[in-house]
Amino acid sequence: MEKLKCLVLDDEPIGREIIENFVSEIPFLELVSSFGDPLEAMTFLQANKIDLIFSDIQMPKINGLELVRALENPPVIIFITAHRDFALDGFETGATDYLVKPVRFDRFLKAVNKAKDYIELKQGSTVHQVNSDRIFIKSDGKLTKILLDEILYVEAQGDYLKIVINNETYTTLATLKSMDEVLNLPKFFRVQRSFIISLEAIRSLNGNMVELTNGKSISIALNKKEELFQILGIR
């Protein structure tokens, strides 16, 4: 894996220097830039690709939480704060971790390793097709075999997929597009942006809703309804 490109943001020079020194001690991190002004950092982030941001929360003009929310595709975030109360708000923005000042190196290293694991998982494929009737997915830190005939539906939930089979549910870090390439016709159909269903699992159709054998009801996108009916042989 290439070095992770990092940006440090803190309006306090001492705080920036501490994190910059910590970054320089970790071989797989590369400090690309460091800012004391959040607006300058935002301008830089809009024009440059960064893997990981270390950002203070309390800053003038715009705080760290507001900055992240303003970014269209924010990098992985580790927030730094003097107040533990801000931690919950940080996690609500999708932050991987948060560090409380004064930051200790051992705690910094733990947060960085967590971010590294997340980035590697996100960049790598978590859905592996081994033959036409089964796949392996990364779930709960292990590879789990799933038989395609057992899948009822797959739901996109942010960066994750929820895969529902006859008696169990699995969650894995992957896109619905990557799963769509595995679950092809004639057994599966993408009924809308967030759902792929098994055609064998359809119990009934009512208007723009499809009910599955487990009782789950899912809406059908208007531009998908005619295609689904044709596949099912319904005129």
Results as ranks from 00 to 15, higher is better:
60 P>E: 10
49 K>V: 13
104 R>D: 14
129 Q>T: 13
40 E>C: 00
73 N>L: 09
81 T>E: 03
112 V>A: 14
121 L>T: 10
107 R>N: 04
18 I>P: 11
78 I>P: 02
32 V>S: 00
112 V>E: 11
80 I>L: 12
37 D>C: 03
95 A>W: 08
41 A>I: 00
43 T>V: 13
28 F>D: 12
30 E>N: 13
93 T>F: 12
25 E>V: 00
79 F>A: 05
91 F>T: 04
116 K>L: 10
29 L>A: 05
71 L>D: 02
83 H>C: 05
76 V>P: 04
71 L>N: 03
51 D>R: 03
120 E>F: 11
37 D>A: 03
92 E>V: 06
128 H>L: 15
38 P>L: 09
128 H>M: 13
105 F>T: 01
66 E>N: 12
122 K>F: 05
62 I>F: 01
86 F>H: 15
96 T>L: 15
97 D>A: 08
32 V>Q: 00
43 T>F: 05
115 A>S: 14
88 L>Q: 06
104 R>S: 13
124 G>R: 10
120 E>K: 11
126 T>V: 03
79 F>E: 06
48 N>W: 00
109 L>P: 02
24 S>H: 11
63 N>A: 04
102 P>W: 02
20 E>N: 14
87 A>T: 01
76 V>L: 14
92 E>W: 06
120 E>T: 09
79 F>H: 09
61 K>R: 13
77 I>P: 02
23 V>F: 01
57 I>A: 08
127 V>H: 01
79 F>N: 07
97 D>M: 07
75 P>W: 05
46 Q>R: 05
133 D>F: 13
18 I>V: 15
24 S>Q: 11
42 M>E: 11
16 R>E: 00
62 I>R: 03
104 R>C: 08
77 I>A: 03
51 D>E: 10
130 V>P: 06
96 T>C: 15
132 S>T: 15
63 N>W: 03
116 K>Q: 14
124 G>N: 14
28 F>M: 14
69 R>P: 06
30 E>W: 05
25 E>R: 08
133 D>C: 08
22 F>G: 07
115 A>C: 13
36 G>E: 09
87 A>F: 00
104 R>N: 14
74 P>Y: 03
75 P>G: 03
43 T>L: 12
49 K>S: 13
33 S>A: 11
